[in-house]
């Protein structure tokens, strides 16, 4: 017997709103007038299952699971078109970043598989060298099962190297070794606890 569930598949979590309100970007969550100019402005909207406006609405309803399992939070490219036009000046990109962080901390499976992997990989490369080194990033992020994609990116990589754009050698910055050590130890602690 089919039942019309008012809010489907989620147990509302009243403390979720409070938590999010403490995030950067979350201070004005209750100020949103649900006008939708964010979704209207977003260049990545077509790949989001819910608009940013809807995500904010869900947060206000305490629908934590639903929010953290949207593709929205992972697709945001932080282009700031939304914030520029939001009549309440809500910093949506930084809010999305913080929601992603929460999702990763709570190990909620991401709608876009590559994303949490990407963040972790990026961090690892940075804490190793202090600067980005794409070849290593790619190797960490690449889906080993997608041979075609792997091949395609590898060939792009080689072309980049041949043109002298991407170096064969990773960057080494001796001046920041102390700082990097701190970065590494903090994240290794996190990794061990994961």
């Amino acid at each position: 017997m089919k039942e019309l569930k008012v809010i489907e598949n989620s147990v509302p979590d009243p403390s979720f709103l409070e938590t999010v309100q403490k995030f950067p970007g979350g201070e004005k969550i209750t100020d949103c007038i649900q006008c939708g100019v964010c979704g209207g402005s977003c260049p990545a909207r077509a790949w989001m299952d819910y608009s940013p406006m809807q995500v904010i609405h869900m947060i206000r309803h305490g629908l934590k699971d639903k929010v953290l399992s949207t593709s929205t939070i992972w697709i945001c490219a932080s282009c700031y078109a939304c914030t520029t036009r939001c009549p309440r000046g809500i910093d949506i990109p930084i809010l999305m970043s913080n929601l992603k962080r929460l999702a990763m901390e709570e190990k909620v499976p991401a709608k876009i598989r590559t994303k949490p992997v990407f963040h972790r990989a990026f961090m690892e490369v940075i804490q190793k060298y202090g600067r980005m080194y794409e070849p290593e990033l790619f190797l960490k992020v690449a889906d080993k099962r997608d041979l075609l994609g792997l091949f395609h990116n590898a060939s792009l990589g080689f072309r980049l190297m041949r043109k002298g754009k991407v170096g064969f050698k990773p960057p080494r910055v001796s001046e920041s070794s102390e700082f990097l050590a701190v970065l590494r130890s903090r994240n290794n602690n996190r990794r061990d606890n994961e």
């Binding site: 649900q34 006008c35 939708g36 100019v37 209207g40 402005s41 077509a46």
Partner: peptide, 25 residues
């Protein structure tokens, strides 16, 4: 839906918004 963009397009003008009731552009 609050209009996101109004852009001159030759003789005409393009308006972009999200219909928030449908979630459609």
């Amino acid at each position: 839906g609050r209009v996101a963009e109004v852009m001159p397009n030759g003789e005409k003008i393009t308006v972009r918004a999200e219909d928030t009731l449908l979630g459609m552009h």
